[in-house]
Amino acid sequence: MCTMILERVAVSGAGKREQGWFSLSHASVTYDHPFHVRLEHALNIDFVDDGGGPSDRLAVELEPDSARALARAILSALERGDEAGV
């Protein structure tokens, strides 16, 4: 592990894989080496169910600016929901 930058957060919800939906217990947010994208370091999110095995995950690997844009978009959408009272 070359940076070991890890934020582990409990989440409640569900994720979908090819095999169907599964419950999520937490997300591992790391800024470390990705597996797929051609970057030395990426913002990686693994959504997992603690009761599952290694293959029970939803993974994204994002270029840092994309990750920041995503974080802003999530917060913006939530704020709009709050404003709308829904």
């Binding site: 592990m1 293959s55 995950r57």
Partner: peptide, 18 residues
Amino acid sequence: EGHGTPEDVAAMVRGVGG
């Protein structure tokens, strides 16, 4: 940490701090 594809197993290890 279990068995699976090397990527999935490594992701699991990464998610628990190595």
